[in-house]
Nucleic acid binder design. Structure first.
Lengths: 134, 134
DNA sequence: CAAATTCACTTGGATTTTACAAGTGAATTT
DNA sequence: AAATTCACTTGTAAAATCCAAGTGAATTTG
């Protein structure tokens, strides 16, 4: 198991100790927004995470209580990665990141209607996303 | 100048291309919550960023339009780092990170009343923080 | 039902990022 | 005028990430 050494008591600092890298939040995104949940899913999710980094990040996310690794209903060769309640609670963070990024960068067109819906009913969107993970 | 190569059109991916590391958001936090705004301020902000990494991150944040480097009103030896509108717009992200982290970790006591206030009037808190940066 | 393929990883090594320690020159203070 | 502060730079060691190639168990294929 990996040891986690928190740099400080700061809530933002602790969050970054866990999630402060280029990949961890993308794995969470893949689960929330793309319905991915196996190793192979994440590996082929688009941005090209390498297999060694993926294995490392999955272990870290599990170790920090963001995801949990369970049996796959259809195959013994696979594992099913799902968000824990702590991981599900990251949805509002992701949502704010999306709003920020869409406002300040050129992003994929799919994001536009999503952001529009967010502006209309953010709480509703978050509730729906939560539901979709049950 | 540093080249930014975005991995994808994904808003979350683009945000992580800029902010996906252990330090960048802490610098933003120092400006928003601790009123820091010089190189020396950031260097002694508590978590112990090294001087080479700090120089690198400041350049990157400036290059990505999050902060701007201006003259210091009291000394020619110093520079004043302030948030751009794009950087100020990160406040809601920081706020969600704080709420998440406070819920799921042991954090510094100062965070508790802040989170309480957030639950009561999040929009008001964000507006106040924005004001404080004018 | 044996062989090929899929699947979730590991392993080894190159490259990039971060950490640590010491310097540098301009501006300020003593 | 000398010492100190300030915002960095430079050099190197350690760590994280990238890249390519395996490995063994589970599944699919012929």
């Amino acid at each position: 198991m990996k040891e986690i050494h928190y740099r400080s008591d700061c809530p933002i600092g602790k969050a970054l100790d866990i999630l402060g890298d280029k990949w961890s939040l993308l794995i969470v995104r893949d689960i929330v927004f793309k319905g991915k949940n196996t190793y192979g899913d994440f590996l082929n999710a688009g941005e090209g995470i390498t297999t060694s980094v993926l294995a490392d990040k999955l272990a870290l996310l599990e170790c920090n209580g963001i995801i949990s690794k369970g049996i796959h209903p259809k195959s013994k060769a696979k594992f099913l990665y799902t968000l824990t309640p702590k991981g599900i609670d990251l949805i509002p963070v992701l949502v704010e990141v999306i709003e920020w990024s869409e406002k300040h960068h050129d992003v994929h067109p799919f994001a536009k209607p999503f952001v529009k819906q967010l502006k209309k009913d953010k709480a509703g969107v978050i509730k729906m996303l939560r539901q979709s993970l049950k």
